[in-house]
Simulated assay, not measured.
Amino acid sequence: MTTSAPVPASVTTGIFGAVADWSQPMVTYYDHDSGERTELSAATLGNWAAKSANFFVDELGLAPGDELRVDLPEHWQTIAILLGAWWAGAHVRLDDDTDTAAVAAVITSADRIDAYGDVDELLVASLDPFAMGVRDLPIGVTDFASAVRVHGDQYALRSPVTGPVLDGQPVGAVLAAARTAAEAEGIVAGARALSVRSWRTGADVQTNLLAPLIVGASLVTVSHADATRLDALADTERATVTLR
């Protein structure tokens, strides 16, 4: 008789629980348009996620179950924000038809500010390679990069997250879908997965972002991918799996 694995206390707990070596690259982000390459070890990504979680709880006052609309492109900062939000127990909403009147806050990019003029709590992520802040924001809009820096880089989860965490789904369902996707793609612990796939929707976040991480693999994610450069990039990054 087999028994299912216990559900982690949060999505983030499950993701970092799969880490075997905190000094090794966990996420490597490329943008072929801008030329950016940013590599984060598990320790560094964990620190950014913890800062984000502490900001959401201590400064924003986010409580478990509160909804957070995340409207951001694929970027390493987006990963840290998602992990921080889940650590804080937030219900992340990625769907475009989210009722923003019902969310505790919206976090988006500077070019999307006008889409959320009626939101009480609007945060802007810089998406800068070095996480520098955004200047000259309108009054009432928070520069997330500057605000998050002052917060601690360790986070202690108060209690297990029991409610929905991603577009209505609970922790167990989100991580189970991620593990299933990893198995289908042959991604295992210690693998290095190069991916050009999008993760803007809840389903895509599970299968294209969380899948490698939940099994202890390293993710190389490429935005605005140049198809002619992918084979060379896979060799450079020593990718064992390429997801196109």
Rank of each mutant, 00 (worst) to 15 (best):
L62W: 00
R112M: 13
R93G: 06
A227C: 08
T28G: 08
H75N: 01
W76A: 00
L83S: 02
P8S: 08
S10M: 13
G140F: 12
R69N: 06
G216P: 13
A88N: 04
G61H: 06
M26R: 07
G163A: 14
L213F: 13
V141A: 14
E185C: 13
Y30A: 06
D114A: 15
A181M: 11
N47I: 09
R197W: 09
E121P: 06
K51D: 09
L210D: 01
D136V: 06
A9K: 10
R192Q: 12
A211L: 09
V106K: 01
T100N: 02
L122T: 01
A177S: 15
Q154R: 13
Q24P: 05
I139W: 12
A156W: 09
L72M: 04
P164G: 15
L209S: 03
V205R: 02
G152A: 15
S159L: 11
I139D: 15
M1I: 08
A43V: 02
G172Y: 04
G172V: 00
V148H: 13
Y155H: 14
D95P: 03
A85N: 00
S23W: 05
I113Y: 11
I214T: 12
A131L: 14
V165L: 14
A147Q: 13
A80G: 07
A193E: 12
L219C: 09
F55E: 05
G14V: 00
V148C: 15
L123Q: 04
T12K: 01
S223C: 09
V103P: 00
G202E: 03
N47V: 10
T242I: 11
L194I: 09
T98L: 02
W22A: 13
G186Q: 10
V188K: 15
A50I: 04
V19F: 05
L83C: 07
T100A: 06
L60H: 03
L83I: 07
T100F: 03
T221N: 07
G89F: 08
L122D: 05
A217G: 14
T44R: 09
A20G: 14
Q169S: 14
M26Y: 05
A101S: 14
T142A: 15
